[in-house]
Amino acid sequence: MITVQWERYPLVDQHPEGRRWLQFTANIGRAWNTVDAYGRAVDDHLAFCLTIGTSPEAARPDVVAAWIGDMHQRPNRNGGVGLANSTIQVRIIGVRSFYDFLVEEGIRERNPVRRGQSSRRGGQARQGLVRRVEKAPWIPNDHAWDRILRACEHEPVRNRLMVTFAYDGALRREELVSLEPGDLEPAWSLIHLRAETTKSKRAREVSFGTTSAQLLVAYLRQRGELFGRVDSGLFLSESRRNRGEPLGRSSWSKIVTGVAKRAEVPQLSTHTFRHLRLTDLARAGWSIDEIAQYAGHRDLSTTLKYIHLSGRELAAKLHKATRSLQADRERRLAALVEAW
Rank of each mutant, 00 (worst) to 15 (best):
N33D: 10
A47K: 13
G233V: 00
R126D: 08
R243V: 09
I107T: 12
P181C: 07
S232I: 02
S239K: 02
Y306P: 00
F98P: 00
G285M: 02
S251M: 13
A339D: 13
P56F: 05
T34G: 05
V163F: 13
A26C: 07
E338H: 11
E174K: 13
A144R: 10
A166F: 02
R240S: 04
M162W: 02
N141M: 08
G209E: 03
D280C: 04
V163E: 02
S207W: 14
Y219E: 01
R173G: 00
P246F: 04
E57Q: 11
S119V: 12
G39L: 07
R241T: 06
H271Y: 04
D43I: 15
I52H: 07
R96D: 05
E264A: 14
G80L: 07
R115C: 08
R115Q: 10
L129P: 06
W340P: 04
D299Q: 11
H143G: 07
L46H: 07
R173W: 01
E238L: 14
Y9G: 03
W6E: 01
D44I: 10
F273L: 09
L268W: 02
I255L: 15
G116L: 06
M71I: 07
E290G: 06
R20A: 15
R19D: 00
V35K: 02
V63K: 03
I2F: 13
T211V: 14
A59E: 02
R110E: 12
I93V: 15
R150M: 12
A170W: 00
E338G: 07
L300H: 08
E175G: 06
R277L: 01
A47L: 12
I68F: 01
Q73C: 10
H45S: 12
P61Y: 10
A31S: 15
R91G: 04
A47Y: 12
S178G: 08
M71Y: 08
S119A: 15
V35R: 03
L216C: 04
E180P: 05
S237D: 06
V90Y: 07
Q293S: 11
Q14L: 13
T303K: 01
F235R: 05
E180K: 14
A263R: 04
R331A: 15
K305Q: 11
D183E: 06
F227Y: 07
T302N: 04
L226S: 07
R223Q: 04
W32Q: 15
L149I: 14
S86M: 12
R126K: 14
N78S: 11
K305Y: 10
P246L: 09
R20F: 11
T197C: 11
A295Y: 00
Q14K: 15
A282D: 02
P181D: 04
G82Q: 03
E290C: 05
C49I: 08
D231S: 13
Q293A: 15
E155L: 15
A260Q: 05
L309R: 00
R329A: 13
R298K: 13
L176F: 03
T198F: 11
E185H: 12
A292D: 00
A334K: 13
F227A: 05
D299F: 12
W252D: 03
V256W: 03
V259W: 04
